[in-house]
Design a protein around this nucleic acid. Structure first.
Ligand SMILES: [Zn+2]
Ligand SMILES: [Zn+2]
Ligand SMILES: [Zn+2]
Ligand SMILES: [Zn+2]
Lengths: 151, 151
DNA sequence: TTAGCAACGATATATCATATCATCTGATGT
DNA sequence: ACATCAGATGATATGATATATCGTTGCTAA
């Protein structure tokens, strides 16, 4: 099997978190890290086959995606049903404030962090109705800087 | 064909907006209005059959859902792939700031509106990266007031 | 009346996701 | 080394969500 090269710190991060990053999980993660755009599970099946010259069943891809998202290494975009590597692996911040800026033109995604002030205001607004917020993920659609400049 | 009774103001609203609300569209809309929880297109197919004693092809349901969402009468929840009638049909507010509080326990949804102040702050945050926001829909998951009280 | 258009039906297919049981593989204790 | 066990992966089937395409209906306006 061909091995992907994990980014130098990923394995360290995983060890620290107690995450067991097998070779196949690394391979999937590496594809997502190198992709400019989010990929679906079936996209990953194709890319995997091309890149590693071995087929991985889509079922396994889904399992690995579930593992990687649960570990916080990967995010699922709910508005597009696609997956993307986390942009903030090095920093220790919570992902409760993540926000995704999704370009409708090039499909690129920028992951930014809401100020915790803003995050708190949003939660407070919701909780004024008696609702207890447990999770949220903000996905904004629009046009990215690069695409704006080329028009 | 059995006719649903449209809420008294809906037809008026549609006329004002230039929306042509056919009987079948009214029927679908009416099902969503009466449902306590969001429904999928296939849920709607079943409910439609039971309620109106005629089958409507799921393809038609999808077309009608597209029409209703484009008209702003219905929203699609992206985190659950289900559809819900807009809670703010009477008021003229823009839906650019809609926010959905989705109960993980009873599946109920409350649609609230972000303050325009908060909305602007979020847009500004995104636009500092050069991104031009075109649409956003915030879906918060948690537990609703009623469910919190019964535990 | 008929040409045109929007709505709707019918059928097929694409895309996204889960369920279940079998097999492999590596760690551990003897 | 061997047995044992658990986690990871494979294989197969099926379910759930959504789109593509073409044909038909039914209204309306010239
Ligand atoms: Zn992240
Ligand atoms: Zn772009
Ligand atoms: Zn609404
Ligand atoms: Zn509830």
């Amino acid at each position: 099997m061909i091995h992907s090269k994990p980014s130098k710190n990923i394995q360290k991060i995983c060890n620290a978190k107690g995450i067991s990053l097998t070779q196949k999980r690394q391979n999937i993660f590496h594809i997502l890290l190198s992709s400019k755009i989010p990929l679906s599970a079936y996209d990953l099946t194709d890319v995997y086959k091309n890149k590693f010259e071995t087929a991985m069943p889509t079922m396994s891809i889904y399992r690995i995606l579930e593992f990687l998202t649960a570990s916080g290494l990967v995010h699922k975009l709910e508005s597009t049903n696609k997956y993307i590597a986390c942009s903030h692996l090095q920093c220790d911040h919570e992902h409760s404030n993540a926000q995704f800026l999704i370009c409708n033109s090039c499909s690129g995604v920028e992951e930014i962090t809401l100020t915790s002030e803003l995050h708190k205001q949003i939660e407070t607004g919701a909780e004024q109705t008696g609702f207890k917020v447990e999770s949220l993920q903000f996905e904004l659609h629009g046009t990215c800087k690069a695409c704006l400049n080329t028009h």
